[in-house]
């Protein structure tokens, strides 16, 4: 069965064959058929290949396996398997409160109109730090973790809205004045420094 990537690679291969033809025989564009074929081979098909490539790379960059393929992100990937329900990312990942194959993206994507673009720029900054500059010892989200990312799913949910603690703090939570990750609330997140002592969950294969 062919997937989208296979179809895209087949389209790229076809475009390469046609482009190589015009590389070898540029005079073929003398006739009307050659002109139309050249327009397809050197404009329409390459543009389609770029659009398909952007789509595939965007889809791929949303996957958990993609995020943790960076060395610096490996412990964050392991933290998703901590066997302790007080660990917020682990609890969400293991109970499929977020799609397991898009766990990082679900909680770290900027859900605004230009969010994916801003996320890509932030991702490129991290790639720069990893390969050109020096990655920081402690990885922190610039500007802190926004409540909007929690509220994207939890706002309007009965369990969230009717919780007496949430009700008392609702304005502060929705205006991001008080973080959901505040001390005493949901303050155990990836907890990388304590990962060595943690017990891990092994999913049934």
């Amino acid at each position: 069965m062919f997937g989208l990537v296979e179809i895209l690679i087949a389209l790229i291969a076809l475009t390469i064959v046609l482009a190589v033809f015009f590389l070898v025989y540029p005079a073929a564009t003398a006739g009307p058929t050659g002109k139309i074929l050249a327009f397809a081979a050197l404009f329409v098909l390459p543009a389609l290949c770029v659009a398909g490539g952007i789509n595939e790379h965007m889809r791929r960059s949303e996957q958990t396996s993609f995020c943790i393929s960076c060395h610096a992100m490996e412990p964050y990937g392991r933290s998703l398997y901590v066997d302790d329900p007080s660990h917020i990312p682990a609890q969400h990942f293991q109970n499929h409160r977020v799609p397991a194959d898009m766990a990082c993206y679900a909680c770290h994507a900027d859900y605004t109109i230009y969010g994916p673009f801003k996320d890509k720029l932030a991702g490129l900054r991290r790639v720069y730090m990893q390969y050109v500059s020096t990655p920081p010892k402690v990885i922190e989200i610039s500007g802190g973790y926004s409540n909007l990312q929690c509220l994207h799913c939890h706002a309007g949910a009965r369990g969230f809205e009717e919780n007496p603690v949430h009700m008392a703090l609702m304005d502060s939570l929705k205006s991001n004045q008080m973080s959901c990750l505040s001390s005493g609330c949901h303050d155990t997140v990836h907890a990388i420094p304590t990962l060595g002592q943690a017990k891990f969950w092994s999913p049934v294969q």
Partner: peptide
């Protein structure tokens, strides 16, 4: 120009 364009695209 056509050759250059084709080579870049390939």
């Amino acid at each position: 120009l056509l050759r250059f364009s084709s080579a870049l695209i390939v």
